[in-house]
């Protein structure tokens, strides 16, 4: 082939590709709004905002701070949609956040401790500190044990409140019902999510 032929081949291939696929800009390919996304930065750390939210809640429980936490957790859930272990940890934090939102200052004294502990697990698993899948599962099981222990405590409180005698019982009747609802909510919601996620994890492990 001569140099002229070379040029002709290139030009002709380009022309054929244009015929087949059209002008890329005119073929319905619309630029997404975020054509030039804002840089998340070289030190981007996706859990930073959640950490700040938890510290705020630890300082003062307000509707605003809890709403901020729940919003960030929801965002994280989308970001880590492919990581089942992270999904379960986030779901645990959402359940805890909702519980604290309802009970505020009357939440079980251990609830913030468990929330911070689950977050510490999330930091290890999602922050890149732990890559080994077995170690990730170990962390998940540990956090689930802590979560279930808290559930048991909340349920016990609920029972205690239900059996409390006389005037005190009458005054706290509403709280007892509330506690029972929360305990039920925590148990049902999380049991459903964890059962489903563990089933998927099991399937994935079997396939490997």
């Amino acid at each position: 082939m001569t140099e002229k032929n070379d040029r002709d081949l290139s030009v002709e291939v380009g022309r054929r590709l244009d015929n087949l696929f059209g002008d890329a800009d005119a073929s319905g390919e619309k630029a997404p709004d975020a054509d030039s996304p804002q840089d998340a930065g070289t030190n981007y750390y996706p859990l930073r905002v959640v950490k700040a939210n938890i510290l705020s809640i630890d300082w003062e429980i307000t509707d605003e701070t809890i709403a901020g936490l729940l919003k960030q957790l929801d965002l994280l859930r989308k970001t880590y949609r492919d990581d089942k272990v992270v999904q379960i940890l986030i779901q645990m934090m959402i359940s805890l956040g909702k519980y604290i939102k309802v009970r505020k200052g009357q939440a079980n004294v251990h609830s913030m401790k468990v929330l911070k502990s689950v977050f510490a697990g999330l930091e290890k698993v999602a922050g890149g500190g732990v890559e080994d899948p077995d170690r990730k599962m170990e962390i998940l099981r540990e956090k689930m044990r802590e979560f279930h222990a808290l559930q048991a405590r909340v349920a016990a409180e609920s029972g205690k409140a239900r059996s409390a005698p006389d005037r005190e019982a009458a005054v706290s009747a509403l709280s007892a019902e509330e506690l029972r609802q929360i305990a039920r909510y925590l148990a049902d919601d999380l049991r459903r999510v964890i059962r489903e996620e563990l089933r998927l994890l099991g399937e994935e492990l079997r396939r490997r």
Binding site: D33, A34, D35, P37, D39, A40, P46, L75, K78
Partner: peptide, 12 residues
Amino acid sequence: IDLADEGIPLLS
């Protein structure tokens, strides 16, 4: 890059 619309942090 469409994920920026969902508020997911992206690299430029």
